[in-house]
C-alpha cells in the first residue's frame, strides 16, 4: 500500500498571523505601544524629541535604572523583593569613591563597588533563606542599617572624594563614537542576565522557585543557594548602578538611590514580570525601563509642574497595571 506523499502544505497566512500574535506577550505589546505613543506625542510637542542625540541621552539615563531593574527583576522572579536598593546603591558608590586609590585612574573602584554590593546582597540572601524573614521586611531593615553606616562614614554630608577618572569614562566616555559607555555597560549586564535566565540551570531554578518554592525544593533544586546568589547579583547590580551614577554626577551624595527603588520595581512590573514571581522576560524589563525613563523625561520636557507630573506618572503606571498586571480571576 502506497502512502501518498504528503503535499507540503503551506500554512495559511491567517494561521501564521494567529501564531505570531499568540506568541507576542501582551505586556510587551502594550508597553512598546506606549513608548511609541510617548515618542509620537513628544515629537508633536518638540521636534528635537526624536533627534538621535536626545534619544541616546535618554538611553544613558535609562542605563542606570536598567541595571538596577535587572537586579530587581531577578529577585522579583523569585517571589521576593529587594527594598535595600536605595542604600545599597549609595553605599556601593560612596565606598567605591572613598576607598579606591588613584592607581590606573582608580580602577579599584569597580571591584570595590561590586564586592560591596555582593556582600550586602549576601546578608539579604542569608536573612531571607536562613532566618526565613520575609524579604520585604528584612531588606527594609538592611536598608536602614546601611543608611546609618553611611551617615557615620560620611559624617552626614556628601563625601568629599569625587569619582575616579575611569568611572567617569565608564559612565560618560564614548568607546564607540556617539554612544555613551553607560549604555554599553547596561547592554553587557543585560546580555548576562538574559543568558542567565534563559539558558542556564540557574535561570530555570529561579523561575521554578518563583512558581512554587516547595516543588522546587522537593525536585532537588538548591533553593537556598539560588535565592542567596540572586540577592548577591541584585546587590552587585545596584552597587554598579551607583558607581556609574557617580561617574555621571561627578560624586556620590546622600539619598542618591532614593529615586531608583520605585521606578525599578515599576519598570520590572510594566515589562510584564509578575510581582508574585515565576513569570517574566528580560526583554520586558528593558522595555519597561525605557518606558519609565521616557515618561519621566517627557513630563519634564513639557514643563509640567511637579504635582501634575507625579499624578500623571502614577496614573499611567496604574492604568497599565489595570491593563495587564492583574491577578487571574478566581485566583482572587
Amino acid at each position: 500500500m502506497s502512502v501518498p506523499a504528503a503535499m507540503p502544505q503551506r500554512p495559511r497566512l491567517q494561521d501564521r498571523v494567529r501564531v505570531l500574535l499568540h506568541r507576542l506577550d501582551p505586556p510587551l505589546v502594550v508597553a512598546s505601544a506606549c513608548i511609541l505613543a510617548i515618542l509620537f506625542g513628544g515629537s508633536l510637542y518638540n521636534s528635537s524629541f526624536l533627534s538621535p542625540h536626545y534619544l541616546l541621552q535618554q538611553l544613558q539615563v535609562a542605563s542606570f535604572l536598567g541595571i538596577v531593574a535587572t537586579g530587581a527583576m531577578l529577585v522579583i522572579l523569585l517571589g521576593h523583593i529587594d527594598l535595600s536598593v536605595p542604600w545599597t546603591l549609595a553605599t556601593g558608590a560612596m565606598l567605591a569613591t572613598g576607598l579606591a586609590g588613584s592607581t590606573l585612574g582608580g580602577i579599584a573602584s569597580i571591584p570595590i563597588a561590586l564586592a560591596v554590593g555582593a556582600a550586602i546582597g549576601l546578608v539579604n540572601g542569608l536573612g531571607v533563606t536562613v532566618l526565613r524573614i520575609p524579604s520585604m521586611i528584612f531588606t527594609l531593615g538592611v536598608n536602614a542599617v546601611l543608611q546609618g553606616l553611611m551617615v557615620l562614614y560620611t559624617g552626614g554630608s556628601a563625601p568629599p572624594s569625587s569619582a575616579a577618572p575611569i568611572v567617569r569614562w565608564m559612565s560618560d566616555g564614548q568607546l564607540l563614537p556617539g554612544i555613551p559607555n553607560a549604555i554599553l555597560v547596561w547592554a553587557a549586564v543585560g546580555a548576562f542576565a538574559a543568558v542567565l535566565l534563559r539558558a542556564t540551570p540557574f535561570g530555570r531554578t529561579v523561575y521554578a522557585i518563583g512558581n512554587r518554592e516547595r516543588a522546587a525544593y522537593l525536585s532537588g533544586m538548591k533553593v537556598r543557594r539560588v535565592v542567596c546568589l540572586s540577592f548577591v547579583l541584585a546587590g552587585s547590580a545596584s552597587a554598579l548602578a551607583g558607581l556609574l551614577l557617580t561617574g555621571y554626577a561627578g560624586k556620590a551624595f546622600q539619598g542618591m538611590g532614593d529615586t531608583y527603588l520605585l521606578p525599578a520595581i515599576a519598570a520590572v512590573v510594566l515589562g510584564g514580570t509578575s510581582i508574585v514571581g515565576g513569570r517574566g522576560s528580560y526583554a520586558g524589563t528593558i522595555i519597561g525601563t525605557i518606558l519609565i525613563v521616557l515618561l519621566q523625561s517627557m513630563l519634564a520636557v513639557m514643563q509640567m509642574p511637579d504635582a501634575g507630573r507625579q499624578i500623571i506618572y502614577g496614573a499611567v503606571i496604574f492604568a497599565m497595571l489595570l491593563l495587564y498586571g492583574r491577578g487571574r480571576s478566581g485566583q482572587a
Partner: peptide, 13 residues
C-alpha cells in the same frame, strides 16, 4: 491588582 504594586502607584498619585 497586587496590593504592593497598586498602592505603590497610588502613593505617587
Amino acid at each position: 491588582l497586587q496590593p504592593i504594586i497598586a498602592t505603590l502607584a497610588t502613593s505617587t498619585m
